[in-house]
Design a protein around this nucleic acid. Structure first.
Length: 272
DNA sequence: GGACAGGGTTACG
DNA sequence: CGTAACCCTGTC
């Protein structure tokens, strides 16, 4: 375990915020969380002074520091919220500590195709089922088995029926088609990281089952385009109710997407 | 128990 | 361009 000082980082809130589906509490160990990403297994715990991570310093610097968005000052974002924007003030206070994770592009794409007309607990089950069925087996530092997220090439070779076995419903066809498009180079998937927000969003929307909302999620949660602003049913309600004059995108340029996540979290959990 | 909705998208008219 | 249909599961 290594110790890292991190401010504005709440494990529970981040894990429940609906942006990631493979970060969960470790059963029987209060306050400890496990996550699988980039093929690796990581456990995290809040210690006396700083967070404890089950990885080496090298791995932290090469992967996790970026994954947990350590280069960004979240306090600065909270402070930048308009004092008169009461709704957002409450949202950032309530969600204090939520970080936008930088997740793998393919995993995020498939996960958010699954997310449509679906709820978080079932999305998690679907994703886990997909990993157990078609992901590579690995062992964590405790000797327990876990599964990587399947590759596009692996999914591309399946049949729609294979995927239906993961309870994906009508999304099975979308996933199969998109995995094949990616595996066969029908869209410039590898090049997404080098594109602008608008370019990446347009490219992603060529995929089957990826509309504007899912594309925005991939831009925000995987490509870290922090101006991406996914509008789902919850955010739609919030916009109508609290921003009838329109959301101040210009005012919040450079972090609007991050505020979106706080608004989403506030809306689904605070019951206002 | 049956109806209903859950972080949308596609494919029709 | 509006809208029904899509699959499945948990919840009321």
């Amino acid at each position: 375990m290594i110790k890292i000082q991190m401010k504005e980082f709440d494990l529970e809130k981040t894990s429940r915020s609906g942006q990631c589906f493979r970060m969960n509490p470790v059963p029987g160990q209060e306050g400890r969380y496990a996550l699988i990403a980039y093929g690796k297994y990581l456990e995290i715990e809040k210690g006396e002074d700083g967070f404890l991570f089950s990885c080496t310093q090298e791995e932290w610097e090469a992967l996790w520091a970026d994954y947990f968005d350590c280069g960004r000052d979240y306090r600065k974002i909270y402070k930048a919220v308009d004092k008169k924007d009461k709704y957002m003030q409450k949202a950032v206070t309530y969600g204090n500590g939520i970080r936008i994770l930088k997740q793998e592009v393919f995993e995020t794409t498939i996960s958010f195709i699954i997310s449509q007309q679906n709820n978080i607990s079932r999305i998690k089950k679907c994703v886990e089922s997909l990993c157990e069925s078609f992901g590579e087996e690995r062992y964590n530092y405790k000797g327990e088995k876990y599964y990587k997220f399947p590759t596009a090439e692996r999914l591309a070779r399946l049949s729609e029926q294979d995927l239906r076995g993961c309870n994906l419903g009508y999304r099975s066809r979308y996933i199969l088609k998109s995995a094949r498009m990616i595996a066969e180079g029908e869209i410039n998937f590898a090049g997404l990281t080098g594109m602008t927000y608008e370019e990446a969003r347009a490219e992603l929307m060529k995929l089957c089952g990826v509309g504007i909302k899912v594309a925005e999620c991939i831009c925000l949660f995987a490509l870290h385009h922090v101006d991406a602003f996914p509008v789902d049913t919850h955010i739609q309600t919030v916009l109508l109710k609290y921003y009838p004059e329109g959301f101040p995108f210009e005012r919040y340029k450079g972090y609007a997407g991050i505020l979106q996540q706080y608004a989403f979290y506030y809306d689904i959990y605070a019951k206002v």
